[in-house]
Amino acid sequence: MMRKYSILLLMLPLICCMSASLGEAAVANSFSPVWRVGDHWTVKAVYRSYPDQGKWSEPVFWRYDIVERAQEGGMEYLIMEVRDREDRLKVSSRLVYRAEDLSLVRVEASKTRRGKEFVTVLACGGAAPVATEQTLTPYDTPVFPLICPSSLDFSVTKHVDQLKAVRTVRQEVRQVSGVEEMPGLSPGGDLIEVICTGKDELVFTQYWDTALPWPVYGENGNMKYWLVRE
C-alpha cells in the first residue's frame, strides 16, 4: 500500500498539471491556506438531529487556533486546536498537520461522557482527503494545494480491526461563483469549490476563499459549517 501512495504522490504534480491544462486555458490556480502560529478563526456548524434526518441543530461555534509549530522525526507540523467557543459541549480536537503540505496526519478527538473524558487518536496517513468522523469538530481536509481545475483520485485506507479497507476518493476542484452553489453563503467573489466523492457517496464539499484560512462553507454527511467573519 505504501508503494501505491508513493506513486500517487510522485504523480500528483503531473496529474494536477494535466488537469489544469486540459480544463481551462487560464493560468493554473494553485492554493494552499496560510496558517501561522497565533492564527485563529471561528466556524459555525450545525448537525443532524433526531428524529428528522433533514433537520439541523442549533448552531455550535467552534474556535480554531493554530497553537504550535512542532518538530517530530525531522518533520515540521502545525498543531491546530478546535473547541467550542463557549466550552459548553466538552468536545474538542487537536489536529496535527504536516507543515510542508498541510496534510492532516493525526486527529486527537476528545469528548466527555458522563463526566469522564474519552480521547480517540486517529492516524490519517496523509496525502488523501480526510473526512470528519468520530467527533463534532469539523476537520474535513482536502489535499493541498488546491489546483483549479483538477480531478484527482486518492486511495483512502480505513482500519477495520487488524485489516484495512481501501477505497478511492475523488477530489475535484474548480473555481465557482454564485450563491446557488454555496448554500447558506452570501454572494461574494470567486471561490474554489472542492468536492470529494467516494464510490457512491459524497465525502465532503468545501468552498474556499483564497484570502481566508478555512473554507467559507463546507458540508459532509453529518454536518454543515461556515467560517464566521469576525
Binding site: 433526531y50 468522523e133 468520530q134 480505513k158 479497507a165
Partner: peptide, 24 residues
Amino acid sequence: YDGVFYNYYPIGTPEEFHRVLTDY
C-alpha cells in the same frame, strides 16, 4: 433528548458494521 445531535454511520457492508464496533 428528542432532537439530540448525532453523527450518522450508514451500515451497508460488513466492514462498515465491523468498523463502527471497532472504532467506538
